[in-house]
Nucleic acid binder design. Structure first.
Ligand code: FES
Ligand code: FES
Lengths: 144, 144
DNA sequence: TTTAAATAGGATAAATTTGTCCGAAATAAA
DNA sequence: TTTATTTCGGACAAATTTATCCTATTTAAA
């Protein structure tokens, strides 16, 4: 469904959000340990999220990654997915035709569109706050 | 969503089904032309579908690929996807955790499950006959 | 039986995604 | 100002997916 990069990016964002509530910055090392992902690769993905203003990085000693507390509830899953995987998942044809087009549909167009819209709606209506909160309360998990 | 291999496999199956209604066998060359896919790669995928008894191949002169007419309406999209991409799309965690598990859910588990089940249901309730018919009547298309 | 036409299958190559390594740049504290 | 710590960024490497090529095998017709 999503690329590995995107999976790591979402899990990392949730972990950063959780720690930001506690006023803690986190390093790529800590992040990759806690979400069980390859460290250097995860660091690359964090840079993408920084470029897209989804997370904030602070360089130098005592630095790390964080998210403005006030910002957390406004970040939607769809923003993270789009930053990393682009908008293919929202726009591309389920059977790989060059364009997904009402006027020139593939055989599964109608049925696929409804699944795709469901996914889109879900991602657009899910924000980092609720996800981070579930981690905090032990309702859900970021690894194994 | 699906791999390229799977996209080609579905499009090829639909094209074979359409021709089988007309009593025509088709070659990998013809198939790849009509669905706009790389020929040799498509041929490989056809072999997988043959191994899974989804399509039938006839070797030698006047051979080609076909599907028993009576069989066409019974072949579900889910079978093709599972033959080529496996059951990952039905079973794996949206955030890449090793196992998707009610007792140890990732933060998007509940929301993701409902999307995934929707997709599964769609694939299980779509058969080759309806798709091939839409191609025959010009309602939908297999390329560009 | 020979021949032509077709799928089967292995080896290999190209492209993309995933992942690693290391030095440069930035920053806070000593 | 120096030093220790940290992110940034480029080059590189490994793994996977996508794609090609060539030969073997099968089969029907001549
Ligand atoms: S054309 Fe294939 S999903 Fe729209
Ligand atoms: S555990 Fe992630 S989708 Fe079920």
């Amino acid at each position: 469904m999503f690329s590995k990069a995107c999976e790591y990016g979402i899990r990392a964002s949730i972990f950063i959000a959780k720690n930001s509530y506690d006023g803690k910055r986190v390093s790529p090392k800590k992040i990759s340990e806690e979400i069980n992902s390859p460290q250097a690769f995860t660091a690359k993905i964090l840079q993408v999220l920084v470029k897209h203003d989804i997370i904030k990085s602070v360089k130098g000693a005592y630095g790390g990654f964080e998210i403005d507390k006030k910002h957390i509830a406004t970040i939607k899953l769809s923003q993270i997915v789009e930053a990393i995987d682009g908008d293919n998942i929202y726009k591309s044809c389920g059977l790989g035709l060059k364009k997904c087009n009402d006027k020139h549909p593939c055989p599964v167009h109608d049925k696929f569109i409804s699944i795709r819209e469901g996914l889109k709606t879900m991602l657009e209506n899910t924000n980092l706050e609720e996800l981070a909160l579930d981690i905090k309360t032990g309702v859900s998990f970021l690894k194994t």
